[in-house]
Design a protein around this nucleic acid. Structure first.
Lengths: 303, 303
DNA sequence: CAAATAGTGTCTTTTAGACATTATAAG
DNA sequence: CTTATAATGTCTAAAAGACACTATTTG
């Protein structure tokens, strides 16, 4: 039914170039991982950005990232970068392309591995680190526009990390090399441009990566228990609700939220304790339950 | 709070190695695209597979794919491969990672595999092509396990394509170089192993890629109008229902399905005509509406 | 006629969302 | 006391799902 022989016979071409005996037969790419690390700080969804010290985009903010090493898996590289940037240990890295019903429980995914401390390189002040804490880590998408890096052909496998609120990199500072910034400002929510320092567009295609990561997070907390990744090990229903409110940018009814979240099997398990850290009546403390898929889901309010 | 200097100062490292003046400073990768092309044939979800003519995995079935060219975007490469393999024109390719309102699509981990096909091997008869037709195309996930291809380091950016039923590659044939095969058989649905020819595991990590693609499709038709990508330009409600039944592997109530699908704004628009190609009372013909996000969603029946 | 598919309606259960009320802390 | 937050309950509207019934074709 089609032109003979031409159609899916590109395979010939493939094998010829795939031959290890002719390494110059295929175009070489650099492969990196970039990280969209999100957290909730002061009731706002924030991302970790680092300031670039060299061209291109010198002085601009960018997402943290680095090269994938010779014998390193993509998930391993992302976990390594996450440790290097934040001290966070990846708690879950799934091969699965997340889907509601398919998201298996994933706990330990990528191994911690050797942080491999770079020698003398850095003055490196204010690390936003919180060693010993865990974060959710998953692959986001891959970006490979030939022009995305002016220096060479780089394909970046972006990852999304969700972490509990971490200590500020350095309170009061202003010209540091790393910081948490509200995603609204980073993504230039129209009217925000020109006002704030971080309203300058991110380097490379990192604004697109971040936007994709934010949308992934926003949609995924609907159908999974991932919102708990933004919370400390023990948290209250109110704290979890404030996570949803910050990530979605909406206000939720505390009573309906409480009823729904406590009624979803496997979402939360009471830890026994209570706290008054939010003021008011003591609230029950919970831990994340084993469920990864929420049924029924938490639905974002309509437009 | 963390080890000084080591943390996010990988930027130095990054920039040093990124320098175009030292191309040997970063490890070179081959980058490919692999395609999980899905369609619905004879009430079963099927995938396009090609037979490998050379080692490794000689004689095994694999997903179609090929190298990303020097100055080619990832989406462009995937669209090119799709045309080469099937004659299908990519109708939609989104950079966006996940499902809009809901569900995150995928994140994937690692896996290897380049499809390789033998040159002389193929008489290349039966292309499952259907020139001039369109298909949905989107990025799925990226697989980069260092061992996924025994020959060299290959990172593959897998894509998912959804197409209407196409003419069989070659009816009656049995040892062709390309064919549609039910995903159940390809993924070795337990009891299916050993019975059928395609019960032999796919080459490389293609079973993982295909499984991820199938799960992406299954979840995405819940919250988007993507199921129409499996249908011809004009289709009936019954035909659309059979798509859902095939993809999900369930039986749906025709009456509730009809009420729901016609009641979802923007999902379907009547084209005016009717058809009796399914037998019985003439059915109204519809086209896909403009809506991409379904509200309310079509929910998969529970376990 | 029977058989098959299309399309509409009706009823019950479940869920979402609006909102009242009570409980227990801090200041 | 007031104020803030937590937790439970009640009501209504919408949606899901089970299922009866009618409509229009082919054989």
């Amino acid at each position: 039914m089609t032109d003979e022989g031409t159609v899916y016979r590109q395979a010939d071409d493939y094998d010829r170039r795939m031959s290890p005996y002719d390494p110059s037969a295929f175009p070489p790419f650099a492969v990196t991982v970039d990280l969209a690390v999100l957290t909730v700080r002061r009731h706002a969804l924030c991302a970790l950005v680092v300031r670039r010290g060299e061209p291109p985009f010198q002085g601009r903010w960018a997402l943290p990232g680095g090269f994938v090493r010779e014998d390193e898996d993509l998930a391993t590289a992302a976990a390594r970068e996450l440790v290097e940037e934040t001290g966070l240990i990846a708690l879950s890295t799934r091969t699965a392309p997340s889907a509601p019903a398919a998201h298996p429980a994933a706990t330990a995914g990528a191994a911690p591995h050797p942080p491999a401390a770079p020698p003398a390189t850095a003055p490196a002040q204010d690390p936003p680190a919180a060693l010993g804490k865990g974060a959710h880590l998953e692959q986001l998408a891959t970006y490979g526009d030939p022009a995305r890096d002016p220096r060479m052909r780089v394909v970046s496998v972006a990852h999304l990390a969700l972490a509990p609120d971490l200590p500020a990199p350095r309170a009061g500072g202003d010209a540091h090399s790393a910081r948490w910034a509200p995603v609204e400002a980073l993504l230039g929510h129209e009217d925000a441009f020109g006002r704030d320092e971080e309203a300058v567009p991110l380097a490379f295609d990192h604004a697109q990566i971040l936007a994709d990561g934010v949308e992934r997070a926003r949609s995924k907390i609907e159908y999974s228990s991932l919102a708990t990744a933004f919370c400390p090990p023990e948290f209250t229903v109110g704290e979890l609700r404030r996570v949803y409110e910050a990530v979605w940018g909406v206000v939720l009814d505390p009573r309906n939220f409480h009823r729904k979240v406590t009624g979803t099997p496997g979402f939360l398990v009471p830890s026994g304790g209570t706290t008054t850290r939010q003021g008011g009546r003591p609230a029950q403390l919970f831990r994340a339950g084993g469920a990864t898929v929420l049924n029924p889901p938490m639905l974002r309010p309509e437009v």
